[in-house]
Amino acid sequence: MMRDVYLGCLTERMEEDPRVLVLGADLMHSDGTATLQDIFPRRVVNVGVQEAHMVSMAAGLAAVGKIPLAHTFACFHARRSLDQAYISAAYARLPVKLIGTDPGITAAFNGATHMPLEDMGIMRSVPEMIVVEPTDPELLRSLLPQIIYASQPVYMRLYRKEVPAVHPVGTEAVLGRGIVLRDGSDASILASGLMVAEALAAAHALRQQGLQVRVVDMFTLKPLDRRLVYQCAVETGAIVTAENHSVINGLGAAVAETLADLMPVPLERVGVQDRFGEVGSPDFLMQRFHMTAGDIVGAVRRVLGRKRRLT
């Protein structure tokens, strides 16, 4: 479970550094931080159902030298307490860490009201905000200290449940740098979150059809690894993005901007197409929103068609 990995890494940090504090808003049994209350009773605060207060309070804690991690569902961080994140934390240059759980379709049975398909895009619009989505346990373990000690505010998506492991044990990730998981020269799939595993499955299927497709884990949406995007454009000439998020203002949009700036090549964006969430199992929702490995295969075929027409 990602939650257990998170709690393990966080406990380690809290043991070493008394400045690290945890805030929650009546979801501490959901994200597991309730277990930290027993270990660090003075440094873990449940404010109750008041996200706006929690985020501004976290800013106040940062102003007196603490390192607060404020937890709630991703949808609430991005929608309910955005002004607090923007003004109290980011504009005030107070490096609060916002941890948003149940990103995208993993809000599953909580349905549309709880399903953040826009959180990364909203947070990306906040100046100086680092926006990151650790893909699997290894990446989370490697990135969490960098996130905690970042001098800027951070918005981090956190999967609570099991996610496919895509990175080998011992991976040392760097915030802001993508990781090439599989090389290839015909096209590149730049993916994030749940979609990295789908991208790998798609690349595997395409290999059976004689195509060599590169797969990159773009776990940091901001700052985006523009150098790597450029490299993929130059070396493979066609790009597909895949994200557990709206294609508006998310990874697909960020990559499109970068390509337009640096090296326009054909691009297809897999993700949620300007629509609200729905209730259902993650598998159902992945089909519903056309976010499966099969959908990525289709996108790669389309993008290769466009690439061929250009050459």
């Binding site: 929690m54 309070m57 976290a58 800013a59 106040g60 804690l61 102003a63």
Partner: peptide, 8 residues
């Protein structure tokens, strides 16, 4: 809220 955080 920020003042509450500082005081805390």
């Amino acid at each position: 809220s920020a003042a509450v955080g500082m005081a805390w």
